[in-house]
């Protein structure tokens, strides 16, 4: 068992356990902070899959942006301790049934599809250069459209949030 294997399973366990903690936590602030563990773990797994730029982008966008926005959302709308209302019993059973169905489906898919897992290798070379080259040549139009989408979303968010009722 090499050191890489240990680090890989550390990140995998970090993301999975943080996600489960967010699912079962009764405190909203704790659930959102558990999301930090998920983002860190997934970012570490990105590095193992040879996506070093995406690992950094994941940290900057999700931890720096999305997580802060969610904490703002909680602070805007929550008075008191941030404890959540208990879920209905039927809702929990329905969710348990649908989720385990989905998990079984995904596991069956990954096991039965002819995916050549042995061809998938970890890499040690950086992917920033080929990523940037294909982003600015082959995928230039979607890239610019994504920038436009962000601008529209920003203007839309300001418009919606600033609108007075009535």
């Amino acid at each position: 068992m090499s050191i890489y294997t240990i680090i890989f399973y550390f990140f995998a366990l970090l993301s999975v356990s943080s996600a489960l903690f967010a699912l079962f936590s009764n405190n909203m602030v704790h659930a959102v902070m558990a999301l930090l563990g998920v983002f860190l773990g997934v970012s570490g797994l990105f590095v193992f899959a040879g996506a070093d730029f995406l690992a950094l982008a994941q940290l900057v966008i999700y931890v720096g942006g999305v997580l802060v926005l969610m904490l703002f959302g909680i602070m805007f709308t929550q008075r008191g301790s941030g404890a959540t209302a208990p879920e209905g019993r039927r809702q929990v059973w329905n969710a348990l049934f649908l989720s385990s169905l989905m998990l079984a489906l995904l596991a069956w898919l990954f096991l039965s599809l002819p995916i050549p897992y042995h061809q998938l290798k970890l890499s040690s070379e950086s992917s920033i250069r080929p990523l940037g080259q294909s982003l600015l040549s082959e995928f230039l139009l979607p890239f610019e459209l994504a920038g436009l989408l962000l601008l529209i979303a920003l203007i839309g968010a300001v418009h919606i949030a600033g609108r007075k009722n009535g």
């Binding site: 999975v16 959540t84 879920e87 809702q91 969710a95 989905m102 990954f110 998938l120």
Partner: peptide
């Protein structure tokens, strides 16, 4: 060497956890 299937198992568990959260939680942020 790390078996590559484990990436997909982690992602399946994350996906199902997110789905269960959407189905059970009542708060918009959650």
């Amino acid at each position: 060497m790390i078996p590559f299937e484990h990436f997909f198992y982690v992602s399946a568990i994350l996906f199902v956890t997110g789905m269960a959260m959407i189905l059970t939680r009542k708060n918009i942020v959650l």
